[in-house]
Nucleic acid binder design. Structure first.
Length: 198
DNA sequence: TTCAGGATGTACT
DNA sequence: GTACATCCTGAAC
């Protein structure tokens, strides 16, 4: 499969969020194991106009520094003290925007991902666990063993440990409001969440 | 099946 | 001190 180049990320954030559906997220572990997932849900965050974005109004702090990196950089942060969220930086360098990866489905090495998530093999998961496998940003990072140690990785460098490849075209794309940002006033209603069914 | 509540640490006021 | 781009558990229905 074709590795996505920097030009893919160097575009309008909302467009990138929609185009990422169906793409394959590849996580390379220390021992060389490749964990592959197909992206099924994304959200766009645009710093210059979006009160829900950590870098709204180009606010620059130690945490948001990664959002100012070149497009195609991984932005990973800790939320609620115990979970991590994975984002891909978009738009030209200096524009603090990113796409949050909210959900995916396992393509290869599902047993290792299941081990990270629930401490068991895929075949041993309950129906409830299968339904809630990687359908949330915190769950996805847990399954792929992503933490702040991976913050700032270059997604266009295959040897960095995290990259994205082209994938099968998604079916019908759904559009809606973003999740968990009720505090963001008018931005809370922006239709910047995209997902596909299975 | 849905729902309330708690866990937990960092950033920022 | 407060809020947070969340998830899990256990109880009620």
């Amino acid at each position: 499969m074709e590795l996505l180049i920097r030009d893919f990320y160097d575009r309008d954030t909302v467009t990138v969020a929609r185009d990422l559906l169906g793409k394959c997220l590849v996580r390379v572990l220390e021992d060389g194991t490749h964990l592959v997932c197909r992206i099924t849900e994304t959200e766009a965050y645009v710093g210059r106009m979006d009160k829900a974005c950590h870098a709204y109004g180009h606010k620059r702090t130690p945490r948001t520094e990664t959002l100012f990196a070149p497009p195609g950089t991984a932005y990973i942060y800790l939320i609620y003290g115990m979970y991590h969220c994975l984002n891909f930086v978009t738009e030209p360098e200096g524009e603090p925007s990113a796409v949050l990866i909210r959900g995916a489905e396992a393509v290869t090495n599902g047993d290792i991902i299941a081990e990270n998530r629930f401490g068991c093999k895929m075949a041993e998961m309950t129906a409830y666990q299968r339904k809630n496998f990687l359908n949330g940003p915190g769950k996805l990072c847990r399954g792929l063993d992503l933490t702040r140690a991976q913050n700032g990785l270059d997604l266009t460098a295959p040897d960095s440990g995290l990259y994205v490849c082209d994938g099968p075209a998604p079916g019908h794309i759904q559009v809606g409001k973003r999740i968990g940002i009720d505090y963001a006033q008018e931005a809370a209603d922006f239709p910047w969440r995209f997902w596909t069914e299975v």
